[in-house]
Amino acid sequence: MKETFRSIEQSNPSYGIRNLHFVTIKSPQLGTRGDICIYIPENCPMDVPVVILLHGVYGSAWSWPLSSGVHEQVDQAIKEGIIKPLILVMPSDGLWGDGSGYVKHQEQDFEKWIVEDVIAVARQLAPDQISQASKFFIAGLSMGGYGAMRIGARHPDVFTSFAGLSSITSIDEFAHFVEEDLDSYQMDTELSLIDSLIANKERLPYFRFDCGKDDLLLAYNQKLHSKLLEANIPHDYEEFEGGHSWDYWKNNIMKTILFFNLRF
């Protein structure tokens, strides 16, 4: 397979966490280095599905595995036969400001970082497991939920399904979390989730999102759900106990993994 990136630095598995790999690449879309954590289960088969998980503001590539233990939850579910084998790919958002939003900025394209570079490096690092037949899924929390749902809606040719947990639903809501000028996020089109979903309505896969009943973003998620119903866009929406915290995300991420598993 032709190498895609000028440089790739990989962790030594002898010193790492079992089945969890840490990778740094020089990204064409970022113009800088980008970090990715990848979980590959033991005895991973060919044509395995891939789930990309996007973190929220202030986080990085290590956030999902080391704040929620998602790789351990998935590993156990695979061993128990609850889900089919899958690879988790957990990239940084590009490490811009408090959070890049996974959108295009003036000089960096954080959406393409995910859709092009992250997928390409996953294929390059796991050529014996990820094939052209492998299906890709994307999910995230908070800012990552915004990124996953927007990117999933805009690239239905790439992603079989997508999901959000406690998702930001529009650029204005970033003001709750970041100190950067919101104008920095507005270099592209379809910036609200409802606009992205309606614009791609005819091609959307079935998707889901959920939110905690004590989450500061609950009203926004409820509004998105209502607008999707008005637009006759099929989806799953659920609310569970909890707020905008890792306790909620670590306790509910497997609901999304199980949802994806039905589509593997």
Rank of each mutant, 00 (worst) to 15 (best):
S7I: 08
S7P: 00
E9F: 12
Q10A: 14
P13N: 10
S14K: 15
Y15A: 05
L20G: 02
L30K: 03
L30G: 08
G31I: 10
G31T: 13
R33Y: 13
Y39S: 01
E42S: 13
E42L: 06
C44F: 06
M46A: 15
D47Q: 10
V48G: 04
P49K: 05
I52E: 05
L53W: 04
H55C: 01
G56P: 01
G59K: 01
W62K: 01
S63D: 14
S63F: 01
S63R: 01
S68G: 15
H71T: 00
E72K: 11
Q73S: 11
V74P: 09
Q76W: 10
I78H: 04
G81D: 14
P85A: 11
I87H: 07
I87G: 11
V89K: 00
V89E: 03
P91Y: 12
D93L: 00
G94Q: 08
L95V: 04
G97P: 07
G99A: 08
G99C: 07
Y102V: 06
K104I: 07
Q106D: 11
Q108M: 07
D109H: 11
D109S: 01
K112G: 03
V115G: 04
R123L: 03
Q124W: 12
L125N: 09
L125I: 05
L125P: 05
P127R: 04
D128W: 05
I130F: 07
S131L: 04
Q132D: 15
S134I: 07
K135T: 00
F137T: 08
I138S: 01
G140W: 09
S142A: 07
S142V: 03
M143R: 06
M143V: 00
M143W: 11
G144T: 00
G145M: 02
Y146A: 02
R150N: 09
R150V: 12
I151M: 11
I151F: 02
R154K: 15
H155E: 02
H155G: 04
F159S: 04
T160S: 14
T160H: 02
G164R: 08
S166Q: 02
S166E: 05
S170A: 04
F174Q: 03
F174K: 02
V178K: 08
E179D: 11
E180F: 06
L182A: 03
S184Y: 10
Y185K: 09
Y185N: 04
D188P: 08
E190S: 06
L191I: 09
L191H: 10
S192V: 05
L193I: 07
D195T: 07
R203Q: 13
F207L: 07
R208S: 13
D210L: 14
D215I: 00
L216S: 05
L216N: 13
L217E: 05
A219V: 03
Y220D: 15
S226F: 11
L229A: 15
E230L: 15
N232E: 14
E238A: 11
F240D: 12
E241T: 09
G242F: 05
Y248A: 07
Y248E: 09
Y248K: 03
N251L: 12
I253W: 10
K255G: 01
I257D: 08
L258M: 14
F260C: 05
F264Q: 12
F264M: 01
